[in-house]
């Protein structure tokens, strides 16, 4: 294989265009390296070369997700690269999400290997670590040299289709793929040694970490609920009759957004549930049992709440992964904020 051809994706900040005020910068492609790409090329030497750099503002990318993805993929395609690198994004949240999303899309569309780098607590890391190799970096751009040192060799391995070692050896964030290997000691001995460490209060590493869940800081209370605009969201799968967007009964790949402007009551004729995780008969008879539109409409009329938001968001929570659920919320919560919604009532079955 000749010199590996790489397209590099960075944001407006790393391209030296500007900070937050330039975050709506539209995708642009430049020949050769820009910004951190220089560091990469130095490290690659004769093995690989960044042939083009794509620059995109973080706000633009995240607010025009589908469009931005399509535009960037077109740009990448033209250069026919062997590999795509996004970032590193360090602890920049929206940059991280953009890097993860575009890397995932490029891999899927163009079938070439992709690589990104992020600080472990970057939300993009959690969202995309299972689909994209993400090198674990320091939490600020001061860690650039260090990040490139880890990313460059992994990039070459990926581009050449070589076997990728364990996360701790290669420096990437574990993707949650369980792989078998032969350890040096038998299991019983490992168990006894682990117990001894645990008894002594020393650090030990479990061989199978239990699935983990999130905690978030609670938002402050709503000051005056009678002035508040309230939106309904449900994981109970309530949809207009006929399930127009074909939301899956389990392991949903999408959510629906439907208008309830002027709707006072959900009836058997107009709404149903797409959810496969419970007996649907009760919800199909009266979807208010899952999504209380009737009551909130009454409360709105009585002035007990400010307004019921014109749209509700819905998906099926049955077997739908934490990661994809998060990405749904990531997208629609922005819309809710933009629409001036003050509070959300989320119902689950």
């Amino acid at each position: 294989m000749g010199k590996v051809r790489i397209v590099h994706y960075i944001n407006q900040f790393f391209a030296g265009i500007g900070g937050e005020e330039k975050a709506d910068y539209k995708p642009e492609v430049r020949e050769g390296v820009v910004g951190p790409g220089m560091e990469f090329n130095k490290k690659f030497g004769d093995d690989a070369e960044i042939v083009a750099t794509i620059i995109c503002g973080d706000s633009y990318f995240n607010e025009n997700l589908d469009e931005a993805k399509a535009e960037v993929i077109e740009m990448v395609k033209k250069y026919n690269p062997d590999l795509f690198i996004a970032g590193p994004a360090f602890n920049a949240g929206r940059y991280g999400v953009a890097c993860g999303a575009i890397a995932e899309a490029v891999e899927e569309e163009l079938k070439i290997p992709v690589l990104s780098g992020m600080y472990i607590e970057n939300p993009g890391a959690d969202m995309f670590k299972s689909s994209v190799y993400i090198v674990s970096t320091k939490n600020s751009a001061a860690g650039m040299r260090h990040a490139v040192k880890t990313m460059a060799p992994l990039a070459l391995k990926l581009a050449k289709g070589e076997a990728i070692g364990a996360p701790d050896a290669e420096g990437y964030i574990p993707r949650g793929i369980r792989k078998n290997y032969f350890a040096e000691k038998r299991g019983a001995q490992r168990a006894v040694e682990m117990l001894i460490k645990k008894l002594k209060g020393e650090t030990y590493i479990t061989e199978y970490p239990m699935p983990d869940f999130d905690r978030v800081e609670p938002n402050p209370a709503v000051k005056d609920i009678t002035k508040a605009k309230i939106a309904l969201v449900t994981s109970g799968g309530v949809v207009p009759k006929g399930n127009p967007d074909h939301i899956e009964a389990s392991s949903a790949s999408k959510y629906g957004k439907y208008s309830i402007a002027g709707v006072d009551d959900l009836t058997e004729e107009t709404y149903e549930t797409a959810h496969g995780g419970y007996d649907p008969i009760y919800c199909n008879q009266d979807s208010d049992r899952v999504l209380p539109v009737d009551v909130l409409r009454d409360l709105e009329k009585e002035g007990k709440i400010g307004k019921l938001h014109d749209f509700f968001y819905t998906t099926t929570g049955n077997g739908t992964g934490v990661k994809i659920s998060k990405s749904f919320a990531e997208t629609f919560s922005k819309e809710l904020v933009a629409d001036g919604v003050d509070a959300v009532v989320l119902t689950s079955t």
């Binding site: 364990a166 793929i177 792989k179 078998n180 290997y181 040096e184 000691k185 038998r186 299991g187 199978y208």
Partner: peptide
């Protein structure tokens, strides 16, 4: 699948075989 092999993933820790997250 490995599950067909007698004793392959023994849960007394008889073997060296194990798995880790990649």
């Amino acid at each position: 699948e490995l599950q067909t092999i007698t004793g392959a993933t023994n849960e007394l820790g008889f073997n060296k075989l194990t798995a880790k997250g990649f």
